Amino acid sequence: MRWEELDQQPCSLARTLSVVGDRWTLLVLRESFLGVRRFDDFEKRLGITRHVLADRLKKLTEAAVLVKQAYQQRPLREEYRLTDKGHELYPAVLALVNWGDRHMSGVEGAPIRHVHKACGQAMHGVLVCSECGEPLVSRDVDLHEAPALQGQLLPAHWHAKSRA
């Protein structure tokens, strides 16, 4: 599988990675969730080259994760804002942050506290089942291919395990 062909794969993770699957893109998203909107501010905060930043912002805009909006007409100046589609990436970014807080923080602990506005409590995101509300871990989830893709996506040993 070639990197530039990820968006053609019959896999939601591969297709998602075709949009957000490199470190600079994830850091641009982090900054977007922190309220950064302008090119120069992204550049300063990330220490990224203009060329790489322009490429990542273009890719996120083409994927409708960000949208460019004018904030000044003369001369024209635009900023990048998260779309609804972009905001929907927040749980994924929060999950990565939570993993980093648990496994990559130093002795000082997590660098940023996340406080839920509704209850005022420091929190960490938890992925839960949409149907019963139980917290999810990988061991508690079975995977089943779509009928049209039966036998094409999951490894052979997975099919044997599912039948057992």
Rank of each mutant, 00 (worst) to 15 (best):
L29D: 05
V65C: 03
H114W: 12
L57K: 03
G109I: 08
T25D: 02
E79R: 15
K85G: 02
T16I: 11
S32N: 00
R38P: 00
L27T: 05
T25P: 01
Q152I: 05
P135Y: 06
H144N: 12
N98H: 13
S162I: 07
V128I: 15
F33L: 03
F42I: 06
D7T: 06
R74I: 12
W99A: 10
R139V: 12
W24K: 02
Y80P: 00
S162P: 01
Q8P: 00
R74S: 14
E62K: 11
M123A: 13
H87N: 14
C11S: 15
S12T: 11
V36D: 01
V141C: 01
T83I: 11
E43D: 06
L154N: 11
K161S: 11
Q150F: 10
L60P: 00
K68Q: 15
D7R: 13
P10L: 01
F33R: 02
H51S: 15
K58F: 10
E108K: 10
L13K: 09
R74Q: 14
V65P: 01
E88N: 04
S12D: 11
H87F: 08
D140I: 04
R23S: 13
D140K: 10
L76Q: 10
A156M: 12
S12R: 11
D84I: 09
Q152D: 10
L136R: 08
E78N: 09
V93M: 10
Y80H: 13
P155T: 08
E131S: 14
G47Y: 07
E108W: 09
P147L: 03
E5T: 13
E43V: 00
T16F: 07
A160N: 12
G47S: 04
E108N: 11
A70L: 08
G21Q: 04
V97S: 01
L82C: 03
L46F: 01
G21R: 02
L6A: 09
P75I: 05
K59W: 04
Q72V: 06
A122H: 00
A54T: 10
L127A: 10
V19H: 06
Q150R: 11
L53W: 01
E31D: 09
F42R: 03
Q121T: 08
L82Q: 07
E145F: 03
G21H: 04
V115G: 00
I112K: 05
E131N: 13
R102V: 01
K58I: 00
P135M: 04
L34G: 00
A70D: 09
W24R: 06
Q69T: 14
R45Y: 02
D55G: 08
S162V: 04
L94Q: 08
Q9E: 14
